[in-house]
Amino acid sequence: MGSVVIGEITVGYEDAGEQQEGRQNGDGGEPLVLIHGHPFDRSMWRPQIDHLSRAGRRVIAPDLRGYGESSVVPGITPLETFARDIAGLLDHLGIERCVLGGLSMGGQIVMECYRLFPERIRGVVLADTFAAPETDEGKAGRRAMAERLLREGMAGYAQEVLDKMIAPSTIEARPEVAAHVLGMMTGTPPEGAAAALRGRAERPDYRELLTRMSVPALVVVGTEDAYTPVSDARDLHRRIPDSTLEIIPEAAHMPNLEREDDFNAALSAFLTTLSTATAR
């Protein structure tokens, strides 16, 4: 665990694994950087950090501005701002190139990072996300939700969406996962969540960018995801020239927590493929 001042904010982050201080992984692969979704924090990646770091992979997971232990900046936070924060963290850690993964909003930040600095990205992981711009109705909805969170706080919203973030079967069978997800949502500062919602409402269209992506991609989705259904994942898979699609059963919007063994297996296989290609 650590923190660094990047520009005007402090960014909290986790840096785990045997290979640190800019050294390459023992398997020849680049570090993995994981970007959380809304309204969560870096602890959502705990199963992946633990699994991969034990295998010797360096894994970095930051808290986005407005979330977790990072600074809260009220107003509006465009995806470009999040992406430049990630670039600043890479600079601080001495990482020239990495594998970059994200879930939901985090996946859209990955796309923005690829738009801004593709030369620093060896491969991407896009989990439960989509590339299309926001509709007029969607923009209005995100702005209204931002105002609601500022007015009411996070608790009511978190209870309303819990059974969409994770499947009802997960809530029943794994109450500890439900408690973790609920705790992340209720612990998010409303000002940070509202700023991200406003920024996400204005996100660009990444669909054409994906057709020009020149690095391998892993696309992951839960079968029960109501926010970004399997059809969205298939669209990403179809657009990205070198992509693998992994559909995880009995999971909703957070398969990395709901079915971590399946998610970790798919992620590990993808990273091994990248490492093998690098060695060649």
Rank of each mutant, 00 (worst) to 15 (best):
G22W: 04
A217D: 09
F270A: 08
L267S: 03
E69D: 15
I35M: 05
M184I: 01
G141R: 15
E14W: 11
R97E: 11
E250W: 00
T10P: 02
A55L: 15
S268N: 10
L210D: 01
E246Q: 12
A265D: 15
C113H: 05
I35D: 02
E134G: 06
T188L: 09
R239W: 03
G29S: 13
E69N: 13
G153I: 12
E260I: 00
M1S: 11
V219N: 10
V59R: 07
F263S: 04
G7W: 10
A179Y: 08
A277D: 06
Y67Q: 13
E208Q: 13
V219G: 12
E30W: 14
E134P: 05
Q19K: 11
A195D: 00
A144I: 09
T273L: 07
R97F: 07
F263W: 14
A144K: 14
G2M: 10
G37Q: 04
I6Y: 09
L209G: 00
R115Y: 06
Y67K: 02
V33P: 01
A194W: 09
D27W: 08
V33Q: 00
L52Y: 06
V215C: 12
M254K: 02
K164F: 08
P168N: 03
P175F: 06
E137A: 10
V230C: 09
R65Y: 07
K139V: 11
S43Y: 02
F130E: 15
R198G: 03
H92N: 12
N264V: 03
I240Y: 12
R238Y: 05
T276V: 15
G75K: 08
M154R: 01
Q108D: 00
N25C: 11
D205A: 05
G68P: 09
I35H: 03
G66W: 01
L32E: 05
I86A: 01
E152V: 07
G102P: 08
V4I: 14
I121Y: 02
E134S: 15
L90G: 01
A251H: 02
V220P: 06
A132I: 03
M111F: 04
P78G: 10
E80H: 09
G26L: 13
Q24K: 14
Q20H: 07
A265K: 13
V72K: 11
E30D: 14
R97W: 03
F130I: 03
R280V: 08
D242T: 11
L150S: 00
Y67N: 13
P31F: 09
N264L: 08
A196P: 11
E208L: 11
F270M: 02
L34H: 00
R238K: 10
D235W: 06
A158H: 02
P31W: 08
T188P: 13
